[in-house]
Each structure stands twice: as C-alpha cells, then as structure tokens.
Design a binder for these strands. Structure first.
Lengths: 341, 341
DNA sequence: TACGAATATACCAGCGCTGTCAAAAAGCTC
DNA sequence: GAGCTTTTTGACAGCGCTGGTATATTCGTA
C-alpha cells in the first residue's frame, strides 16, 4: 500500500496526496476530503522511512536524560507524558539515557548523527548544561527544557519550585512548628537551590530567623535523608519537623525516625517534595508537593513542536503545583516525645 | 557524509562499504579493516531512513505494554533494560503503551503499519494474549514475551514465580509462623496463579494445611492490600504474617497495620513480591522477592534478535530470583500484641 | 602454467516519499 | 470575455542506501 495507490484511487497525483498527508496548503477542501476518504478506505499509512529520507525530517523527538536517574518515577512520568503527547501527532519519541561517564557534547553528536531528531527535550541535570544547549543551537536542533535553572534555555516548562517549597513549609508553620529542619538536594541541581530558598522564604515571612544549624546537606538519595535526619535529631535542640528536598530523602527521614522509635507525625513531622508513588505507600502517607509531570511533558512536546515551526520561539511556561497533605505532618507534640515499643 | 564519501575515501565501491556496515561476508579482512578505518576517520554514520527504506528492515524493536501500568517501576525497569541492551546493537526500541480501551489486535495492525518493527517484546498482561500472538505470527513479526503464562508463546524469559513465592513463604515458616495470610493478585494475571500456588506449596511442604479463609482476593493495588489486611486481621484467628502477591499490596497491608496500631514486624510480619523501589523506602524495609527486570529485558532483546535471524526459534529462559530479607518480617510475637502509641 | 571453481567486488535499479518547478485551472478586473 | 494574477495540481528527480546480478579476481588442482 503506497501513496501511488491512494493517488490512483482518488484520481489525483501522488504529490497532491502528499500535500494532504502533510497538511500543506493549496488543496481545495473538497479534493482534500476525497483524498482523505481514499486514505481511510485503503487503510493507507505512509512509510516513515521513505518520508524521512525524502523530506529530511525524522519526525522524531528525543528525550535526553541521565541514566542513573533512569529508574526514577520522575523520568518515568515524563516518559509517559511524552509518549501520550506524541500519540496524537506525527512525531515519535526516542529515549536517550546518557551515562554520565560519557562526554555529553560528544555523545550528543553521535546521537544526532544516528537519529537526526527534529527536536529535543532536556530534563535536569542536562537541562542546565550550557555547553549542551550551545551545541544544539549549532546543530540547529530546537529544544525545550523541563525545570531548567539556566537562563540560557530557549523554551522551558516548569513550576515555581521556590513558591512550592515555601508553601509546604508554611503548612508546617501553620501547624505550629517553629524549628523546622531541611535536608537539601544535590549540589548543581536547580531544585536544590529553589527548594532551599523557598524554605527560607517561608520561615522569614513567618518571622522565624532561619537557623543554619537546621539545614543539612543531602543528595536526593534515601541514605542522605537518613543521615541528615540523624544529624538533625541529635542537635541539642532538634527540629519538630523536617522538610526534605525530595520524597526519597523524606522516606530516609521516616526510616531514621522509625529506627529511633520516634513516631511520625506525633514526635516528628516529615514532608517531602515530588509526590513519587512511594509517598502514597508510606505509613503514614507522606505530605509532599505534587508536580504535574505528565502535563509538563505534554507541554514540552507542544513547545518543541512549535519550535520546529518557528525556531526563534522562546517561551517559559509555569504550571501550577499542589501541596498534597497526608498523614506525615501534624501539630508538634510535647518536646522529646518518644514511643516505647 | 554519505556512504559514497566513505567508498571514495577507501577506494572501493559503495556496495563494499555497505557489506562492511552490515557485517556481511565476502570482504577480505584487510579490506574490511581499511574501510572501517575510513568510516571512523570520516566519522560516518549511516542514514537510518535510507537503510530502512532500501533494506526494508526498520531496525526497530517494539515494547508493548499496558498504559495503566505505565507508571509502574516494573515497566520502567524493563524499559531501562531494553534501552541498555539496544545501545550495543544496531537496533532501537520503540515504546508502545496500549490503552486497554483499544481493540488490541486492531491497534497492533495500526502500530505495525506505522513502525514496521522487526520484532516485538510483550509483557504481561499482553504476554498472555493469544489473539495478539496469532496476529504477530500472521504478520511474521518475531516476538518474545516476558513472564508469559501462555504456552502459545514463541520465546519467553521469566523466572519461576511459583518457586519464588514458595521461598518467601518458607522464610515466614522458618521464622515460626503457622497462620500465614495471602492477598492474591488480579485475576487473569499469570502472576496471581503462580504466587498463590507457591504459597500453598510452601505450606503443604511444611505440613500446614492451607486454610482458605486466609486467602483473600486482591488486584495488585495498594487499596486492595489495605482491604485484604483488614479482612484477615478481623478473623477470629488472624494470621501472624501476610504474604501479599506484590509490593504495592504489601504496602497496603503495612498501612492497615499502622492504622490499627499493630507494629510491623512485632505483631505482624509482612512480605511482598517484586522489589519495587518503595519496598526499600518503607519503614521497616519490606521483605520481598527480587526479579532481575533489567536482566530479563536484556535477555528478551537478545532473544528477539536471534529470532529475527531464525524465525523458528523457540526458547524459554528462566532467570534466578532472589529473596530480599528486610525488616518487615520477624518471628511471631505473643498473640494479639498491640502497640500503644 | 592453465583451467575451472570459488570468492570478492562493482554496477545499477529502485525502496516510497517529498521538493522543485512547470503547467493547468480558477479567480479577478475592466 | 480577454488578459491578467493567483491558486491548485502534476511530472519528475533524487533523498542514501541495499538487493540482485554481472564481472573481476583469487585459489586450487592437474
């Protein structure tokens, strides 16, 4: 089943069918309709390879991400969103996990040579990689970033992480907490700085002077949540609540509390960030910030699609976040409460 | 940069370069080496579209899965494994999430028409869909399944789920449990039947007559774990341990125990199946069965690659599983133990 | 050394589609 | 309705590669 068959069936030239297939102008509506009917009737599907070859467009959108984070539900959600968004277009997604060992710019060249994607979507940490973005500019490949920290990006979709972090800390303050610990994210990630800043914003707005002793370094991994919590809980004056910069670390905090026999939320309130599947599975359920990953991915796809048509495109989209209140946060109990098991 | 440039640089015809690119015979080793050197030197990468068009091979392997399960870490792990495995080949993966609303066989036809994948990998539940497999046979598309229950499949990679379930129940028995509850999986999934059978095997081998009151229906979702646990714990003679057919349900069990103030593992041992990321994040960590998803995906890719070369291929690969002992299981405590918080 | 068999290489058509550009049709003006 | 512009349609080449087939080279054997 080739375009020629359709052309014959509709009594037109292949070029006219091609115009219809590609939504190009200069086909009268009635003719277009007739050709579309033929396409449906013959159940014709154009050959992707031939199209790409002749049109030198691959109809591919590449998603670049970091292999170590490949298993994360964050990436998974983005993938789901991107695949969904592509389904209704003529484009298709290619996933490209980078090993961080690779030289990114060199690896990109190889990848581009292989797949010739028409556009790319970058997620952190690569969404902040200026050398990478420069190279894409040179290769004239439009791209959009998700949650980029960089001003150098062309188009970005993200949400106000700083405000979201502030919102969840304000929730803790509203519950009556005054000493709130924070376990920060991995250095270099935009998320780290924003969430830390939001934490401080909320404290200051409530008239609480941020105590630097209550902020400990983390790296977004479970173990660093555990360690961070241990350090915070061993302070002379420990916090009554801990805001971890992501859910995995918040789970680490809960583990440390569990190990020490501190009931959550009675003796310690815990909240995270990201609304990973695990946050719902924990007991108690973890209070966290939900970011609409699938929706963001969908928008990023739409952005790059627009950017393919108009390479000068340069827009920032902010999506709304949502604080998901669950059972891991409550009003502070009497100091030094301790469960006996 | 085209094949012609390489041919000129190496002083041979394009066809000879093509032979080298496709690992075809009839090129003398020295010549082959010279051409490979030229390819490297010129940094030549063949054009995928032209290759597919001329060779009528897409170099694509499709992964078919169910969209509702798209967010699951199980699929994610498989995707990671497949992508890794493809990286070292000339093949590429296309992900195809099906909406369960779609007529599967019709959707397959459309998908095949679009992408013309050279092979497919099916995961449950589609790995058990006989109509689908028949259609693939008709379309002459080789495929491999992962954890298929069906005898109709061509090649499959899986592990002995029944034995694994038995192993984890035996662990509970070894700890001293005699009344062990089970929350089964969704009807229709092979996993449901195998895990239930393994549970019964272990009990019988230990001389414990399976008590049907201790088996309740689940559907692999968190909520059904909660409900199932509630029903089991309200029995006149409740179990001292619950084996849920997957981790999400096991988390539901832990939630129900938490709600009732039953400490895990002191008052109730809980174990799951799958070793999802959440199982490690729980407090206490969840005892579960680890299946090497990435490895299985890699093997499935190798299988279909072999099947492309030899369409009669028909092999079953069993990979080893591993019981991951964590803190959610312990010797049974005194009956009706109840934590006061 | 000569001859046929086996092996290695080259030539060319064509995969299915789209871009270019020319031709035809339609619309517009007076 | 003639002559012009604008819109619509079509013919054809060629995207970069591989399959088939013809040709050249090498090897083995007498």
């Amino acid at each position: 089943m080739r375009i020629e068959d359709v052309a014959e069936h509709a009594g037109v030239s292949t070029k006219t069918v091609s115009r219809v297939l590609n939504n190009q102008p200069n086909v009268r509506p009635r003719l277009r309709a007739r050709i579309e009917a033929s396409i449906r009737e013959l159940n014709y599907v154009p050959n992707r390879s031939a199209r790409s070859l002749a049109g030198s467009r691959s109809h591919l959108i590449a998603l670049l991400y970091d292999n170590p984070t490949a298993g994360s539900s964050y990436i998974m959600e983005l993938i789901v969103g991107i695949l969904q968004a592509c389904k209704s277009t003529q484009y298709n997604a290619v996933l490209h996990p980078f090993d961080s060992s690779e030289n990114l710019v060199a690896a990109i060249d190889g990848f581009v040579a292989h797949h010739r994607p028409d556009a790319m979507i970058l997620v952190p940490p690569h969404a902040n990689d200026i050398a990478l973005m420069r190279r894409l500019d040179e290769l004239a490949i439009p791209y959009a970033t998700i949650s980029s920290r960089s001003r150098e990006t062309r188009s970005d979709v993200g949400f106000d992480e700083r405000m979201a972090a502030a919102a969840i800390v304000e929730h803790l303050i509203a519950l009556g907490h005054r000493r709130i610990g924070h376990i920060s994210g991995l250095k270099g990630h935009g998320a780290r700085a924003w969430r830390l800043a939001g934490y401080r914003d909320a404290l200051r707005r409530a008239g609480i002077e941020p105590d630097e002793a209550l902020v400990v370094e983390g790296d977004f991994m479970f173990a660093s949540g555990e360690n961070g919590a241990a350090r915070l809980l061993e302070l002379a004056e420990p916090p009554t609540a801990i805001f971890a910069a992501n859910d995995d670390m918040a789970c680490g905090v809960m583990r440390e509390a569990y190990t020490r026999g501190l009931p959550v939320p009675q003796a310690l309130s815990v909240c995270g960030f990201d609304d990973t599947p695990a946050s719902l599975l924990m007991s108690p359920g973890l209070t966290t910030v939900h970011q609409p990953c699938r929706e963001m991915a969908r928008m990023a796809v739409e952005q790059v699609l627009r950017a393919i048509g108009d390479p000068t495109l340069n827009e920032m989209i902010r999506v709304p976040f949502e604080v998901r209140l669950r059972a891991s946060t409550a009003a502070p109990g009497p100091p030094a409460a301790r469960a006996d098991e």
